[in-house]
Design a protein around this nucleic acid. Structure first.
Lengths: 204, 204
DNA sequence: ATTTATATACCAACTAGTTTGTTTAATTTT
DNA sequence: AAAATTAAACAAACTAGTTGGTATATAAAT
């Protein structure tokens, strides 16, 4: 056994994530990361073969956490399986709650990478599209369950309705950052919840 | 008088905008811009004092076009002033039409800059927030006109409802790019239109 | 009308500094 | 002993920005 490198690796990933979200990936230099972490160049290149290997590790990490959020909300609402509309609304409410009261504007590595996508290889970009498609398909299933015995008030395209969750998240992040107002995020999600209620709630 | 530099300046702005949207601002080098435009470094720095002066000119240009779109849609729907809901829906429809049939995923310089905001000075970032607030206030007025004699089906926060237009645009751009599917954009806007119809249309 | 002047536009080569990445030898931790 | 880390020097390529000079269109003076 040698010594344990995981704390160092973790520190690099943590600090560089913050830097990337505010300077962009190209705008973040390795020297900047070394300053923030206090480690040396040798240690950095011991953990990551190239700067783009860091990019990939960052997005892999981020996607894993993202998929955990998805699984968590699915499990938390599993008990409502028999009342599909309530389940979907509760699923959404979890994310509204999560985003309520945050102190600074959140941001998303997917969007960050997407706006400098020519810097990254296909494998790295596929992690992003893969995650987004996972959200899409999850929502499609949740909505399909509703539609079994519940007609929507409007003739809607289901795939794009499913995408709207991610769309609103991503868009709200951009506005929240640009206007420096974290409250924008939960408020926008609330509108999506309203929309689903208006579309699917039975009463007149 | 010397020769006319406006075509050169225009070329720089056009090409660098494309580059910035795919590589990020930091990820776009001046040499790259010179390759694409075929001009020389001397010419570049004749037109722009620094690289960040280009960033500012780019966003000024972009914001101006953006504000033109806003004014255009306002004027096109002015004839519906007396039927505020129809006006808002028609206003939206203009942008749905504009985004229908496009061949490649569009993107937005506001979002691009926002995800590497630490690269830019306050003046540059204020152009972005200024434009977004202009959209917000325009939509607030349009919605207020509706609410004069039309109660909404849900108790909605007006400011965030106004913001949703920009939120959906920005979010749809991100997904459209990440999944390489330009059709996402008009489809997402259609959902916003649906939402407004469900909120404000009188019939049961 | 041709020369002369001049401001603008532009070019090619250069400079100073930064970037990612390498190397090597010594040191620390398990 | 093996893995992780430091420190420091180094290189090759790239970066933003500078310099000194040249071309071009217009306007003024001859």
């Amino acid at each position: 056994m040698g010594r344990d490198g995981t704390p160092t690796r973790k520190k690099i990933l943590e600090e560089s994530k913050k830097l990337v979200l505010n300077y962009g990936f190209s705008g973040t230099s390795i020297d900047q990361i070394l300053d923030k972490t206090g480690i040396t160049k040798g240690a950095f290149f011991y953990h990551f073969r190239t700067k783009n290997a860091l990019a990939k590790a960052l997005i892999e990490n981020y996607a894993k956490e993202d998929m955990n959020h998805l699984e968590w909300a699915l499990q938390e609402t599993e008990y409502l399986e028999e009342i599909p509309l309530n389940r979907l609304l509760q699923f959404l409410q979890h994310f509204i709650d999560m985003m309520t009261g945050i102190k600074e504007p959140p941001s998303c590595l997917y969007a960050s990478y997407t706006y400098e996508s020519n810097q990254f290889d296909e494998e790295t970009l596929n992690i992003i599209s893969g995650s987004i498609l996972k959200w899409r398909n999850t929502f499609i299933e949740l909505i399909e369950d509703i539609m079994v015995d519940n007609k929507s008030k409007k003739d809607v395209d289901m795939q794009s309705l499913a995408d709207q969750f991610t769309v609103i998240f991503e868009g709200a992040f951009v506005l929240s950052k640009a206007l420096n107002d974290p409250e924008i995020v939960p408020k926008q999600l609330q509108h999506f919840k309203n929309y689903l209620e208006l579309l699917f709630e039975p009463k007149g």
